[in-house]
Amino acid sequence: MSDVADRIRKVTVETLKVDPGRITDDSRFVEDLGAESIQSVELVAAFEEEFDIEMDEEAALGVKTFGTAVEFISAMLSA
């Protein structure tokens, strides 16, 4: 779990150019971490690239916080 969280943190830092110290489980990508709502879809593509997974559109729209991204991707990887 922590490895997944670390990798999601790394991708988030690289994509959104934010300080890793600002990221908590409750951090919202758009409102708190400065993702333009239009570009949040590219953040999802960055997660897909990191983990070599495919997130469907509905799921991607539902991933709004760092914590939900960790939960969702961990579940996908263990499925």
Binding site: I38, E42, L61
Partner: peptide, 13 residues
């Protein structure tokens, strides 16, 4: 079969 937000994202990007 897609949300309006997704169609707009594709339009913009």
């Amino acid at each position: 079969a897609s949300a309006t937000a997704s169609v707009i994202q594709a339009g913009v990007l």
